[in-house]
């Protein structure tokens, strides 16, 4: 437990003690701010009777941020340690592979959540300056943040896996980006393959991250997507652990 907490703290400090962390947060703030502005200008033209959170997550903006942020946050986790050789000092300390994987995941995921905090601020600013309190309520906001946290788990764990398989941060980032975009695009496959095979369509519908997120953003928390996202996260973490262990039998 001590090793896990010590490692998590160091990993988190690595984001916050370097420029990278602040650049990522600044970029996320800029993009969320820009998305909100665009969204509000659009709403001025065509009033829409839907909660703002739902509208935000239905735009490509949100997905653009999450798909870009995940690789940037996760690419250094293992690749950099392998490249610099610190992987050796780390793994020869009395820590288990599982502790290392979980600590790195926790730190990256916490940082990812930190990155989304400005979104909360934007929501409050909006509420302050609009006359409609119904535009934003605790339920939808809570649902939206639960969705962000769960989706983040999947993307951060996927990025961790990508970072574990290579020494190159660029390759890790590319793998994570391609994986993330693929997962995202599967959301749109369901409607199209219906004609070919209903079974395939069912599978695609389960993988439909886009719709899952929309549900969360409306404040609808269904256990199925929650379990699905959690198990996908666990699967990626398990695979990362296997990759780390592979140096023992390769």
């Amino acid at each position: 437990m001590q090793a896990y907490l010590t490692l998590t703290r160091r990993e988190l400090a690595a984001y916050l003690n370097s420029m990278t962390g602040y650049v990522v947060i600044a970029a996320a703030v800029f993009l969320t701010g820009l998305s909100f502005t665009v969204l509000l200008l659009k709403l001025q033209d065509t009033p829409t009777p839907a909660p703002l959170t739902e509208l935000f997550f239905a735009t490509p903006f949100f997905w653009l941020i999450i798909l870009l942020a995940a690789p940037v946050i996760t690419m250094r986790l293992f690749a950099q340690e392998r490249f610099a050789g610190t992987f050796e000092t780390l793994m020869t300390a009395p820590v288990s592979d599982l502790q290392v994987v979980l600590a790195k995941f926790t730190a990256a995921w916490l940082f990812y959540l930190l990155m989304w905090l400005p979104l909360l601020a934007s929501s409050f600013i909006l509420r302050r300056f609009t006359s409609l309190p119904a535009a934003l309520d605790a339920g939808t906001l809570g649902g939206a943040f639960l969705g962000i946290a769960l989706l983040g788990g999947v993307f951060v764990a996927g990025g961790l896996l990508a970072s574990a398989v290579t020494r190159s941060q660029i390759i890790a980032a590319m793998l994570c980006l391609v994986g993330g975009v693929t997962l995202f695009l599967l959301s749109f496959l369901g409607d199209r393959v219906d004609a070919i095979s209903t079974r395939l369509a069912q599978v695609c519908n389960h993988l439909n991250l886009f719709d899952h997120m929309n549900d969360f953003a409306r404040g609808v928390v269904d256990t199925r997507p929650v379990v699905f996202l959690l198990s996908l996260t666990a699967l990626f973490l398990f695979l990362t652990l296997r990759v780390l262990e592979s140096r023992r039998w390769r």
Partner: peptide, 22 residues
């Protein structure tokens, strides 16, 4: 290890403290 890999962004005391706790 060979080439003595360290975390360049950490301070000396902070690093040693981290390693000791680890």
């Amino acid at each position: 290890p060979e080439n003595n890999p360290l975390y360049p962004e950490m301070r000396v005391r902070e690093y040693l403290k981290f390693r000791a706790r680890l």
